[in-house]
Write a protein that binds this DNA or RNA. Structure first.
Lengths: 156, 156
DNA sequence: TGAAGTTAGATTGCTTGCAATTTAATTGCA
DNA sequence: TGCAATTAAATTGCAAGCAATCTAACTTCA
C-alpha cells in the first residue's frame, strides 16, 4: 500500500517524530494562551507561577522558590524585583542566615489570590482534554522532567 | 486513612496539580538537557529545530519555517541572522515575491546533518521512556498544542 | 581557631519569545 | 487602472532562561 511509504520518512531527524519539539511547542502555546488572562492581573506566566508558590506558603527563600520551579537566581532575582516593584511581594535578608533573602506577600499580593483562582478554571477547556487525561499527562511529564534533570546532573 | 487527607489539598491553585507547569518545566529541562550536545555543534536548541526543518526541505521562506515551528519573525529574523553569521545558512530575497526571504543551507550547514543525527539517538534515553510511550505522549501534546493555539485564535 | 570549601543571591552577557509597530510588496476589487 | 486591504520581514522593547562569574556569609574540620 502507498500509505506504508510514510514509514520510510521515519527519519531520526524528522520534526514530526520529535517528542522534544512537542514539549517545546506546547510550552510556548501555553504561555501565549495564558497571556491575556494573566495580563488582566498584570502578571506574566512565570510571575504567576511564583505567586502560586507563594500563595501556597509565604516567606520562602529565593532558593526554595527556585527548587519548586526549577529556576535559578539568574532568572528569579530580576523577576522577583519586578514583582516587588509591582507591589506584590517584599524581599528582605534573613537576619539569622544573611545569605538568604526571604520573599513575602504584601496585602495586595495576598489579595490577588482570589482573582487568580479564576485563571486555571478558565484555562481548563483550552487544553481540550478531560481532567483524567490531564492528570495522567501531568504525571508522565513530571516523571520525564525528573529523568531529564537527573541526566543533566549525572553529566555534572 | 490519613493518606486521604491529600485530597483536601486538591486546591485549584496547587502547583502540584498544574498541567501547565508540568509542560513548562519539562520544556525548560529539555532545553537544558540538549544544551551540552548541541553546544558541540555550536547550536542552541531553537537553532537546532530550524536546522532540522531545513534539512527536511531546503529553500524555505521565513514564514514557512515559522509555520512549522510556531514562531514569528520577531523570533526568527535574529535567530536566522545568527545562523547566517555562523555560516550555516544563506538568506536572500525571493525575486518573484520580494516580500519573502528564502533560507537555504550552505555546504557547511548541509554537512552538519550527519553529526546532528547522533543527537536524538543520544538524547533518547535521557527521557527515560519507551519509544511507544514517547509516540503516545507526542501525539497527546501536539493535539493539546493545537487546541491551545485554536483557543488563542478564537479570541482573535 | 581559622583556612578551605560550600552555599545563597546578585550580576553580566547572550539568546530566545513575543507583542506591537513599521516598511515594502502583493492582492483584491470597485 | 488604482486604491484599500493583506501579507512577509524587519524592528523595537521587554521579560524570561541560563551559563558563568562574583561577593558575602556560613560550615567543616584539621
Amino acid at each position: 500500500m502507498i500509505t506504508d511509504m510514510k514509514d520510510s520518512k521515519d527519519s531520526l531527524l524528522d520534526l514530526e517524530n520529535f517528542l522534544c519539539f512537542a514539549i517545546y511547542s506546547t510550552a510556548n502555546a501555553v504561555t501565549r494562551a495564558y497571556q491575556p488572562r494573566l495580563a488582566a492581573l498584570g502578571l506574566t506566566y512565570p510571575q504567576y507561577l511564583v505567586m502560586v508558590v507563594l500563595w501556597e506558603r509565604e516567606n520562602r527563600t529565593v532558593k526554595a522558590i527556585g527548587d519548586k520551579l526549577s529556576l535559578d537566581s539568574g532568572t528569579l532575582t530580576p523577576l522577583l524585583k519586578r514583582l516587588e516593584t509591582a507591589g506584590l511581594i517584599t524581599r528582605r535578608r534573613d537576619t539569622v542566615d544573611e545569605r538568604q533573602v526571604l520573599i513575602a506577600l504584601t496585602e495586595e499580593g495576598r489579595a490577588m489570590r482570589e482573582r487568580a483562582e479564576a485563571v486555571p478554571a478558565a484555562m481548563g477547556q483550552a487544553f481540550g482534554c478531560t481532567l483524567e487525561e490531564a492528570k495522567g499527562l501531568r504525571a508522565e511529564l513530571m516523571a520525564m522532567r525528573d529523568n531529564l534533570i537527573a541526566s543533566i546532573d549525572e553529566a555534572q
